[in-house]
Simulated scan of single mutants.
Amino acid sequence: MTLPTNHPDVKTGKIGLLLVNLGTPDDPSTSSVRRYLKEFLSDRRVVNIPRLIWLPILHGIILNTRPKRSAAAYKKIWREDDNESPLRYFTAQQSHQMALKWPDLVVDYAMRYGNPSLSEKMAAMTKQGCDRILVVPLYPQYSAATNASVSDAVFDYLKAQMWQPTIRIAHPWYRHPAYIGALAAQVQAHLATVTDEPDKILLSFHGLPKESLPKGDPYYCHCQVTGRLLAEALGWPTDRVLISFQSRFGPAKWLQPYTSDTFEALPAQGVKNLLVLTPGFATDCLETLEEIGMEGVETFKEAGGEHCTLLPCLNDSELGMAMLEAVLTDELAGWYTPEQGL
């Protein structure tokens, strides 16, 4: 088709694949952490408290006290060689690996909070000619505080666009056979390297306020399904694969049992050898490496536990990338297949 000579240069016909993770400070300084927490904790999906009550607390107390403590924690896990947070490093690696696997697509990554921003990456994909974009919230289990927040940001961006690309939001993969299989294979590979099997496996998921469940958020149920299916895949009884919830914040009751309480209680119940996974996180981050890998392990041992091993998140491992490829192949059906191309 011949276009008029004065037709604007508009690129079309490409498919974008945008991986979206939660977010991270740009560096482990107090000021950078404060900027990140301000954006994160201002999201109504994250903190569902009336603004007249919450904003004075956020700006008057939390942003004046928490950033310094969080910055100290980030410094413990910061990747000095890359000058990068683990979360952004591994998300970038996942994006890079998917781009190598599927060179026909425009593949990139964004953060819901912080940099690179979701709107920035959506605009860049559109400019490159993507008129179809698969947005992939990197959360295996759906929650309004994570998946829905990503959708909110995507459609807030689209509201300002005259020509909107067609959008798909990837379905959570909490029960996808490739995801359960990758978790089981990771556990089995670890067990093959040890002489004593763990007494229990603890699956620690990020917590949510307890009120989220009766309000209709399926997150708690998704976590339970993941735990049950993993136990079945391993051939273990369900009471040997435990589920707990970490990272609670504020005075309200959150989903239970709490991971911190579980670490304290298990040794008294005869659990001396514990294997821990954090399957709700697609990449390692502050909550996995510092909260569980450092604080949690220390709590368990101080309570009388002897051995506590934290397996890394699937990250950009061979298992993790094969899992993502299988999940996203399903999500791209009708748009793109690796064998047939566009």
Score class of each variant (00 low, 15 high):
M1T: 13
D9G: 09
D26E: 14
D27L: 09
T30S: 09
F40V: 08
F40E: 08
R45T: 02
V47A: 04
P50Q: 06
L58V: 04
I61M: 09
N64C: 05
T65C: 05
R66V: 11
A73G: 06
R79P: 04
D81F: 04
L87P: 00
Y89N: 02
Y89R: 11
T91S: 15
Q93C: 03
M98K: 01
K101V: 02
P103H: 14
V107P: 00
Q128C: 12
C130Y: 03
I133H: 11
L134N: 10
L134C: 10
Y139T: 05
P140C: 14
Y142G: 02
A144V: 08
A145E: 09
D152M: 09
V154I: 13
M162Y: 08
W163G: 00
Q164S: 00
P165A: 05
R168P: 00
I180R: 01
T193N: 07
T195C: 04
D196G: 00
F205I: 09
H206E: 06
K210Q: 03
E211Y: 00
S212D: 06
P214D: 10
D217H: 01
H222S: 03
L234R: 09
T238M: 11
R240A: 12
S244K: 08
P251I: 11
K253W: 05
Q256S: 10
S260T: 13
F263V: 10
A265S: 14
L266R: 10
P267S: 11
A268R: 14
V271F: 09
T278N: 12
T288Q: 12
L289W: 05
E291C: 03
E291N: 12
I292T: 12
I292K: 08
G293A: 10
G293F: 06
G296H: 13
V297N: 05
V297H: 04
K301V: 07
E306N: 13
C308Y: 06
C308N: 13
T309V: 15
P312W: 08
C313H: 02
L319T: 08
G320S: 07
L324F: 02
L324N: 05
A326M: 06
E331N: 09
L332T: 04
G334P: 15
